[in-house]
């Protein structure tokens, strides 16, 4: 297996594990920003350990660090999005499932939108957007791996034969951070409001005689 392919598989596995294990765990904990950052950092460190353990990359290579940082930001966005969903739906399990499902749908976007791209002759910007939706593209850009022209994806999506650019690493990283912070700060007033409403209901004096 090519190194890039290996790195993508490892980092993808860490991301999926974060969605399945870390997100439900984080939802059980206090919603402080520092806690969420620490949980995201733990995903990044896990990625770093797995990559150094499983690949023969030189210790001076920056790729594992880039991937760890990228996974850290992706996990942060996942945790805070799940937190916002939990606050609005009042169901932690539903929020965790929703976020995992959304992650899987976004990750596989180049696969299931491939036929549409071929059929409707989407423009350059639309093609780039579809590719950018997928966190796999972000991880591939961090791993310096042209996955859409790799063996498997080239055979199963039309993107390898089209003109496209991978998402810009700085821009996508910043976007994940902004999504994470926005979700976090939207969640707080919603939770406060719900708590206040619940208290009002709880302590409403009985009108019955």
């Amino acid at each position: 297996m090519a190194l890039g392919e290996h790195l993508l598989l490892l980092s993808g596995s860490v991301l999926l594990s974060s969605a399945i294990v870390l997100v439900p765990y984080a939802l059980e904990r206090p919603a402080a920003l520092s806690h969420q950052f620490l949980q995201a950092i733990s995903a990044g460190i896990s990625a770093l350990v797995v990559i150094w353990w499983q690949t023969s990359l030189s210790p001076t290579s920056l790729i594992p660090l880039k991937l760890a940082l990228g996974l850290c930001l992706l996990t942060f966005a996942l945790i805070t999005t799940a937190g916002l969903l939990a606050a609005t739906t009042s169901s932690r399990s539903r929020a965790a499932c929703g976020v995992t499902l959304a992650l899987l749908i976004a990750a596989s976007a180049p696969l299931w939108l491939g036929s549409a791209v071929e059929y409707f002759y989407f423009g350059h910007a639309a093609i780039n957007s579809i590719i950018a939706i997928s966190p796999v593209s972000y991880l591939a850009a961090l791993a310096d791996w042209d996955y859409l022209r790799g063996e498997w994806f080239y055979r199963h999506t039309p993107f390898g034969g089209l003109r496209f650019d991978y998402p810009s690493i700085p821009m996508t990283s910043l976007l994940h951070l902004i999504i994470g912070l926005t979700c976090h700060y939207i969640r707080r007033p919603i939770e406060s409001y719900k708590t206040t409403s619940n208290n009002c209901i709880k302590y409403q004096p009985s009108l019955s005689i």
């Binding site: 090519a2 890039g4 392919e5 791996w145 042209d146 996955y147 790799g150 063996e151 080239y154």
Partner: peptide, 8 residues
Amino acid sequence: IGYGGDER
């Protein structure tokens, strides 16, 4: 020889 970024 491949594209140069994918090794296939």
